[in-house]
């Protein structure tokens, strides 16, 4: 963080831009999202398989955009932006994952039986 402010265009943050990489990431992201859509729309697989595929496609697209659009790499310019992002990721996953897990457990143990067995509601 000691770059001169003389010419803002010469700043490393500006010089990170790369049109080819942007176009490449765009194409790959759309192909991954399109593939997931095609498989889900045609129900080509079980629920669990499709869920896995959608997750894999989302992870792939996220990585591609993170690297080629947000430029999250360990270069001197981007190092701290990348480190802060990777420190953030576990917090994000824990917030979403632990909440979903806790409530799925709650549903299973306390509320679901009647819904899972609608006949039980008839009595």
């Amino acid at each position: 963080m000691s770059t001169s402010n003389g010419n803002p265009i010469a700043h490393p943050q500006v010089q990170l831009a790369n049109a080819r990489q942007y176009v490449g990431a765009y194409v790959v992201s759309l192909v991954l999202m399109g593939t997931a859509l095609w498989l889900v729309d045609r129900h080509l697989g079980s629920q669990e398989q499709l869920l896995m595929i959608v997750t894999a496609c989302a992870a792939g697209a996220a990585l591609v955009q993170a690297y080629f659009w947000l430029r999250l790499d360990f270069s001197r310019t981007q190092r701290w932006i990348t480190i802060s992002f990777w420190l953030f990721v576990p917090l994000f996953i824990m917030t979403v994952g632990l909440t979903a897990w806790m409530f799925s457990t709650l549903y299973t143990r306390t509320m679901i039986p009647a819904l899972m067995h609608p006949a039980a509601l008839m009595h």
Partner: peptide, 13 residues
């Protein structure tokens, strides 16, 4: 990416 994948795509599953 996540909204599309986990709201719109898995929403149909």
């Amino acid at each position: 990416i996540f909204v599309f994948s986990f709201v719109y795509l898995t929403g149909t599953l």
